[in-house]
Design a protein around this nucleic acid. Structure first.
Length: 513
RNA sequence: GCUCCGUUGGUGUAGUCCGGCCAAUCAUCUUGCCCUCUCACGGCAAGGACCAGGGUUCGAAUCCCUGACGGAGCACCA
């Protein structure tokens, strides 16, 4: 044994190949399947096919953190040839009041990420289903109506004491639940509780509320007549079973949900799906909080121009900046599904996007805070290529004979030389630049830096919107030929998406370096 | 307070279930070099981590205990 261990790896492999070729193949196959970021889902073999769900609360467009769910279940869907349903859990018309525009905004966001739900459901369409199951649960002795005040019940529960309503007879419970459904009570007067275990060591699991009364009508006209609404744990638990969900992925804030819902599943004789919990995501590079309501407040207060403001950590913003959904998915899937909280580095999204757009992004010059110089001698214009790796795309034409503007940092000292990229080498002489007879060797030898530049006249004014605020500059004339929506690179500045060409100038959204 | 859960480089992640092949993987990041008419791309190299302390063991990132730190739930929110 010791002798074998001392052998170099290659030799060990050889020996093993002679002795046990099958086992070797197995070992090496295992080593190869580590090329995806996400861990395998648990117990996949026990199911005919993998079915997952995203259960968003439609309270606004999505921020970057929200994209994690479609990114992960979409990736699993592809891996396992499975499916997923998008189910809007819009069962609180008051404190989590749905925003009617958010339903479509969220579906748009999912499409942007590159996924298509196999089914879309709205919980607010399914109240009758929940009522039916509540009645079944009551009949099974699994629920009781309770008119305790919330605080009173909480005290009893924490002391592991049953409330006086717990042993009501079923007939009364049935009648009172019917009255709840009929809207006979006001908010706070009556709830339906699941009978779990009042002595359970975890107080969070004791006799939780399944249905409560809400006076505020639902914003959807289809659901505005209902007053008796299910709580998440009941609604979600029932729907997961009814829609055939095999794998639930959710946040650690719902760690206790499975344990709560299991009581209902047990009453119904259902099998609980596999569950994966993940931690919270934070995103670096933004000083705005990753919260829909905080973003909404900031927009309403005028601190952001809208959901797609480049300073907002939203998917709408990334899309406008020219970041592809695929890059967002790649970066989020790489976070895995661990239960600890994670930080998403925007640089990883940017790296993934750069990989996707670099080849297509034509190059242009943008000069910020340009300092003007007259140019003496040399050619009429410079002709840098549209893309350094694709000469066939042609070259740009940048006039030089009417003078040029340079960024202050690039202005050479008196008598020093710089190479105007795509044009010629110039030497500074006061506020003039004299073209020298140097060839490119002066750049190779390190005697002159290559810089970008723009003509003094005929440029396109550009407002570049970035997460850190707007930047102004002028782009070379050919930039006007780009199409809205194109992603181009302003050399030495970064990739941007062309957003608008107006008479008084263009607007671009900065994507990343 | 009660109940759960977690802790691998700056960030994320693999390895932890089934202890040795882990002086720890990959990506991102930072730095340097190469390539190049800058940038970007590409290539090469370097940097940087097993929360702490005990225990078990021939051997611990991996198992056990204690502690520290962090997170979550205990809602008529999702």
């Amino acid at each position: 044994m010791a002798r074998v261990n001392d052998l170099p790896p290659a030799e060990k492999r050889e020996r093993l190949e002679e002795l046990a070729p099958d086992e070797l193949a197995e070992i090496e196959a295992e080593g190869e399947k580590t090329d995806h970021d996400l861990p395998d889902l648990p117990n996949v073999d026990a199911y005919d096919s993998v079915r997952m769900r995203a259960a968003p609360n439609p309270n606004g467009p999505w921020h970057i953190g929200h994209a994690r769910m479609p990114a992960v279940i979409g990736t699993y869907k592809q891996r396992y040839d499975g499916s997923f349903v998008v189910r809007f859990d819009d069962t609180d018309p008051e404190t989590k009041r749905p925003d009617l525009a958010a339903y479509d905004a969220i579906l748009d966001d999912i499409e942007y990420l590159g996924f298509e739900p196999d089914e879309v459901l709205l919980a607010s369409d399914r109240l009758e289903t929940y009522y039916d199951h509540a009645r079944d649960l009551i009949d099974a002795g699994g629920a009781y109506t309770c008119s305790c005040g919330a605080e009173d019940f909480s005290d009893m529960k924490n002391a592991a004491e049953a409330c006086p309503h717990r042993d009501k007879d079923r007939e009364t419970v049935r009648e009172e639940f019917t009255a709840m459904v009929d809207g006979a009570y006001d908010a706070g007067e009556m709830v339906l509780r699941v009978r779990t275990d009042i002595n359970h060591k975890n107080p969070a699991l004791r006799d939780w509320v399944a249905f409560r009364m809400i006076d505020t009508p639902h914003p959807r006209p289809e659901a505005d007549a209902y007053r008796c609404w299910p709580m998440l744990d009941f609604q979600s638990g029932v729907d997961d079973h009814l829609t055939g969900v095999t794998h639930i992925i959710r946040g650690i804030d719902l760690q206790d949900s499975a344990k709560r819902q299991r009581f209902v599943y047990d009453y119904f004789g259902w099998e609980y799906p596999e569950v994966v919990h993940w931690g919270h995501v934070q995103v670096d590079a933004y000083d705005v909080r990753l919260s829909t309501s905080a973003l909404k407040a900031k927009i309403d207060a005028g601190g952001l121009d809208g959901w797609d403001d480049p300073r907002a950590p939203t998917l709408a913003s990334l899309r406008r900046r020219g970041v592809r959904g695929e890059a967002v998915v790649e970066a989020l899937a790489a976070l895995g599904t661990s239960t600890s909280n994670v930080d998403l580095a925007m640089s990883s999204v940017y790296a993934a996007n750069r990989d996707l757009v670099d080849d297509d992004a034509d190059r242009y010059f943008l000069v910020r805070d340009g300092e003007r110089f007259e140019v003496d001698g040399g050619p009429d214009a410079g002709h840098p290529p549209l893309h350094p790796d694709h000469e066939d795309r042609g070259e740009r034409t940048i006039p030089v004979d009417g003078g040029v503007v340079l960024e202050p940092e690039d202005v050479p000292d008196q008598g020093d030389r710089v190479w105007l990229k795509g044009c010629a080498c110039v030497r500074r002489d006061g506020d003039r630049l004299a073209v020298t007879d140097d060839d490119i060797e002066v750049v190779r030898s390190g005697d002159a830096d290559v810089i970008h530049w723009a003509p003094a006249e005929g440029t396109v004014p550009v407002r570049m919107r970035t997460p850190d605020g707007d930047v102004h500059g002028v782009a070379e004339p050919d930039f006007a030929a780009t199409a809205i929506g194109d992603v181009v690179q302003f050399e030495r500045i970064g990739f941007v998406r062309v957003d608008d060409h107006a008479d008084d100038g263009s607007v671009v959204y900065w994507a990343h370096p």
